[in-house]
Simulated assay, not measured.
Amino acid sequence: MTALVPPPPTSGKGLLERVEDALLPLINLVFLLLMFFIVAGQLTEQPLPELPGSARLQQERSTEADLMVPANGQWQVAGNTVDAGELLAALPRPDEHQPLKIAADQALTMADLDSLLRLLEEGGYTDVLLLTEPGA
């Protein structure tokens, strides 16, 4: 009786040799991908982001805010202490594309923050960003 399906052509190779021949393109592909990511990783000009808690990040964080509000109620703009009369003149002009950044101490009461926000609203600041520290 003749077989309905002819046996697969093996060209005289054993099973191990056929498996090795099938793995060679896969090995080549993995090697090319590895080379691609090595080259692509070298092309970036941006440095790696700073790790949380690093000294450089702590220095940059203090300069991010336009207005610092410690718990003692003394407002600071660019490191200078200002009172309510000088506050609006010391702050940058209201800008609809850039919100005013406020860094408030966690011990600041809501009443003090509310009075500050009312003063800023009277000065034309409609977009305010309140900066916070991540919880530990």
Rank of each mutant, 00 (worst) to 15 (best):
M1W: 08
T2C: 05
L4C: 04
V5D: 06
P6M: 08
P7I: 08
P8M: 05
P8W: 03
P9F: 06
G12E: 01
K13H: 13
G14C: 07
L15F: 13
L15N: 02
E17Q: 15
V19G: 02
V19T: 14
V19I: 15
E20P: 01
E20K: 15
L24R: 15
L24W: 03
N28R: 15
V30C: 06
V30N: 04
F31D: 06
F31T: 15
F37T: 13
F37R: 11
I38S: 01
V39C: 02
V39T: 10
G41W: 03
Q42R: 06
Q42K: 06
Q42C: 09
Q46T: 11
P47H: 07
L51C: 04
P52Q: 02
G53Y: 08
G53Q: 04
R56E: 10
Q58Y: 05
Q59H: 06
Q59M: 08
E60L: 15
E60K: 12
E60G: 12
E60S: 09
R61W: 06
S62I: 14
S62T: 14
S62C: 05
T63V: 13
T63W: 09
E64V: 14
A65S: 11
A65P: 01
D66E: 07
L67Q: 07
P70Y: 01
G73I: 05
Q74L: 06
V77G: 09
V77H: 00
A78Q: 12
A78I: 02
N80D: 09
T81Q: 09
V82R: 01
V82Y: 00
A84S: 14
A84E: 12
G85Y: 03
L87W: 04
L87A: 05
L87N: 00
L88D: 05
L88F: 05
A89R: 12
L91S: 04
P92E: 10
R93W: 05
P94K: 03
Q98V: 15
P99W: 04
L100V: 07
K101P: 03
I102T: 02
A103E: 00
A103Q: 03
D105V: 08
A107S: 05
A107D: 04
T109G: 13
T109D: 10
M110S: 14
D114V: 05
L116K: 03
L119H: 14
L119G: 07
L120V: 10
E121F: 11
E121W: 10
E122D: 14
G123D: 06
T126F: 02
D127V: 08
L130K: 03
L130C: 04
L130D: 01
T132N: 03
T132C: 01
G135F: 08
A136P: 13
A136G: 13
